[in-house]
Design a protein around this nucleic acid. Structure first.
Lengths: 140, 140
DNA sequence: ATGGTTGCAAACACTTTGCACATGA
DNA sequence: TCATGTGCAAAGTGTTTGCAACCAT
C-alpha cells in the first residue's frame, strides 16, 4: 500500500512536529483533487474522528503555507482554498453555476510576465490566473 | 469644468435613483486610479462630509455591480475592490511589500481562453489575472 | 403617493488572538 | 524536559439582513 507522499516526513523536513491533526490535514489536501476549503477539511477530520479546534486548523494551514508544503488559492471568494505545493503549476476554471473546479495547465504566462518585467521594471514572483464560466454540464 | 462621466445619468440609465451617496461612490471610484476598497470609500465620503451607513455602502456597491456600472476585483485579499466598468480591460500588478497596485494592459489571454474552450468544452465568461512581486521602489 | 433607498442594530462567515494546558522529540 | 502544538473563548474584519423611517421621482 504505497503512498505517494509520506506526510510525516514532509513535516519533519520542515521542522514541524508530526501530530495527528497535521497528518490528517496534509492527507485531506493530497487526496482531494481540487483546491480545498476549510469547511471540507473540518468535514474530513470529523469523518476520520479527529478532533481539532478551528483555531488549530487555521494555524496549521498557515504554518504549512509558510513552510511551502501547501499553497493558498483565491477563487474570487471570501475564503481561501488550499492545495499541496507538490502539484505541478496550473490554474483553475470555475463553473459560475455549479461551482465545479477544473484544473487548467500549461498556460505559458511566462512570456507575458517577461514583457511586464521589461516594460515596468517590476519583479514578478507569482501570478494568479483563473477562468470563470460554465462547465460542460451547466451549458444549456 | 467638464466631467468625463455624468454619474447622475449613468444611474438613471440603469434605473437607479440619483442619491448623494450613490453619486459620491461613483465619483470616488472614477477619480481613484486603482481598484478601491470599501475603507477608501468610507474615507472619501467622510472627507466630503457625506454620511452613509456601511450597510448602505455595501448595498450600493452591489447594485452598481449588478447593473455593470462597476466591477469587483479580487487581489488575493480577504476583501473586495471595485473599479468603474468603463476602464479598458486590464489586469493588475501588486507589490507584495508596499501594496502598490499598477495596471497591466493588453495581455492577450484570449488565445489561451480559446485553447481551453476547445480542449475542455467549457464556456469562459471572464478571467482574472493578477501578478504579484516587488515594484520598482521596493527592490533593493 | 409610493416604491426604491437608507440607517440602525444585529447577525453572518471566515479568520485570528491570548493564554493556559498538553504533547512530541 | 521543554519548545512546540492545541483547545477554548473571545475578538477582529469584511459583509449581509430585517425592519422601520425616509426621500427621489
Amino acid at each position: 500500500m504505497s503512498m505517494i507522499h509520506d506526510c510525516g516526513n514532509e513535516l519533519k523536513q520542515v521542522n514541524l512536529k508530526v501530530t495527528p491533526i497535521r497528518l490528517a490535514i496534509l492527507k485531506a489536501l493530497e487526496n482531494h483533487e481540487n483546491p480545498t476549503d476549510v469547511k471540507f477539511i473540518f468535514e474530513y477530520l470529523k469523518r476520520n474522528r479527529i478532533k481539532a479546534d478551528q483555531a488549530t486548523v487555521f494555524r496549521i494551514l498557515k504554518s504549512l503555507t509558510s513552510k511551502s508544503l501547501i499553497k493558498t488559492i483565491h477563487l474570487n471568494e471570501s475564503k481561501l482554498r488550499y492545495e499541496p505545493s507538490s502539484r505541478p503549476d496550473h490554474h483553475h476554471f470555475v463553473c459560475e453555476k455549479c461551482g465545479a473546479i477544473e484544473d487548467v495547465s500549461d498556460c505559458n504566462i511566462f512570456q507575458i510576465e517577461k514583457e511586464i518585467r521589461r516594460k515596468k521594471g517590476v519583479i514578478i514572483n507569482r501570478h494568479s490566473l483563473e477562468f470563470f464560466g460554465l462547465c460542460k454540464d451547466c451549458q444549456r
